[in-house]
Write a protein that binds this DNA or RNA. Structure first.
Lengths: 108, 108
DNA sequence: CGTGTAAGGAATTCTGACACG
DNA sequence: CGTGTAAGGAATTCTGACACG
């Protein structure tokens, strides 16, 4: 529980730089544009997750194709919405199965 | 591939301190005793994985019970050996299934 | 054995700004 | 728009050592 290695914000900008090949400037710029949302330690140091790193790589690829921040933001939002919809679907499916299960046992 | 969030060494000692509640001294001491193996950045900063953090927590619990480093080391080694044995078993099982599969199709 | 601490240095990260295009 | 850079400050991390028990 609460041990989601992929989304936990524990990585400092130096490591993100290594892992993505981007400059600190580029990484911070994507935050300024509201494309990623690192957390801050009490003293203000940014902390990123592996998920953030993946997003940064995707963004960098798109940018090379000439895609601008506004469009990137909308693409990311769409992606997020889609993921949330899928999560909802899974929940409903589980609920449905549970209901089916209990109906099945009602005849006891 | 190569995206194992749990074992990738990307976390600095400050974050490890937060996540485990241990002091830097305690964290470094466990390395000195060869119980954990952080990597180093080019300039010498230690980098830990989520897996290291879990190990540290386990060690801390044992230590409170009075277990010493030598014993801890042997326990950890046993654990590691067991995991490796399990990995071997899985490989063998897969190989066995593949063999069975091909034998089945030999009759064609 | 395991842990705290003061010491001094080296590397990291942060912000706001100017620059280029 | 996206990115580089110099500037100055604040916080992090490192090592080797002395201390206590």
């Amino acid at each position: 529980m609460s041990e989601d290695y992929k989304t936990k914000k524990v990585i400092s900008i130096g490591v993100v730089k290594e892992l993505t090949g981007l400059s600190e400037r580029q990484i911070r710029y994507n935050e300024e544009r509201k494309l990623i949302f690192p957390e801050r330690t009490p003293n203000g140091t940014r902390k990123y997750s592996f998920s953030d790193i993946e997003t940064l790589v995707k963004i960098a690829e798109k940018r090379e194709e000439g895609v601008q921040s506004m469009e990137l933001k909308q693409e990311l939002k769409k992606e997020k919405d889609r993921e949330e919809t899928e999560a909802q679907m899974r929940k409903k499916m589980i609920r449905g199965q549970l209901n089916a299960h209990f109906r099945m046992n009602e005849g006891r």
